[in-house]
């Protein structure tokens, strides 16, 4: 079959997404009729898609069964896709800490079991951003997140641990041991594991319920790791001061 682009409207495969958008815009209690009217979609098609979205918990029906609301399964998509916002007060605190130090200070947030850059050090840009977000087992902030998730969620990625440098931990047993240690100490570190020649330290920024929701990350060249480490206490204190601004 030859592919012919359609000019009459969006393709049918995106119909579920358009329905989700309508429910998100109209709010809890949006009815099937409102959806079909808004999208000019055949009733039977709309009912079928609505029901399969309910089945997969992307939507939930309201108590009278007429209306729809966004279901909890959609939270993965929305939280992962929404860029984190950092309040000015929090930015100011981080900026104050950065002043004069010879290492980078970044803030990374944990969203749907993945890392998101919330505030990047303007003087020392992040290296290997893609690798850092994609392979959490190789970075300090990533390991902190994995330690926090524990067994409750399956972190991205699944499958064998990718070797980025010769120091990257690729043995899952060894990683588990290190995660247990991180949980105990409340900090994570990485030397040459993400990128040859660089090292970093990460401290948790905790939600009121004690769960870590972000990582304050200090990065420096590998040879200056010990010097950076001396600022650990100050960084930890900053992390606890940041928490109420972020969560």
């Amino acid at each position: 079959m030859t592919y012919r682009p359609t000019h009459s409207g969006p393709s049918t495969t995106s119909n579920p997404l358009r329905i989700l958008e309508i429910v998100a815009r109209f709010g809890t209690g949006t009815t099937a009729k409102e959806v079909t009217d808004a999208l000019q979609m055949p009733q039977a098609t709309a009912y079928r898609i609505l029901n399969s979205l309910v089945a997969d918990e992307y939507l939930a029906r309201t108590s009278d069964l007429r209306g729809f609301a966004l279901g909890q399964a959609i939270s993965g998509l929305i939280t992962a896709a929404t860029p984190p916002t950092v309040p000015t007060a929090a930015r100011a605190l981080i900026e104050e800490f950065r002043g004069g130090n010879r290492f980078a200070v970044h803030l990374l947030m944990f969203r749907s079991a993945s890392l998101r850059v919330a505030d990047e050090d303007p003087d020392y840009r992040l290296h290997s951003v893609f690798e850092m977000l994609r392979y959490p087992h190789a970075s300090a902030a990533g390991k902190l997140m994995l330690a926090e998730l524990g067994d409750s969620a399956s972190p991205f990625p699944t499958g064998p641990l990718v070797k980025l440098t010769q120091h990257t931990i690729t043995d899952s047993g060894q990683l588990e041991e290190q995660l247990a240690e991180i949980r105990l100490k409340g900090e994570a570190s990485e030397i040459n594991e993400l990128e040859q020649g660089s090292a970093s330290l990460a401290f948790p920024v905790r939600l009121p319920n004690g769960v870590a929701g972000a990582a304050l990350c200090l990065s420096s060249p590998a040879e200056r790791f010990t010097a950076t480490r001396e600022h650990a206490e100050a960084a930890r204190e900053l992390a606890s001061r940041l928490a109420p601004f972020l969560f």
Binding site: E57, A60, T62, G71, S75, F110
Partner: peptide, 15 residues
């Protein structure tokens, strides 16, 4: 078994 609050999306980040 009606839909409950926890079945809904609340726009809170899920760490």
């Amino acid at each position: 078994d009606e839909t409950r609050e926890l079945d809904l999306f609340h726009g809170r980040p899920t760490p």
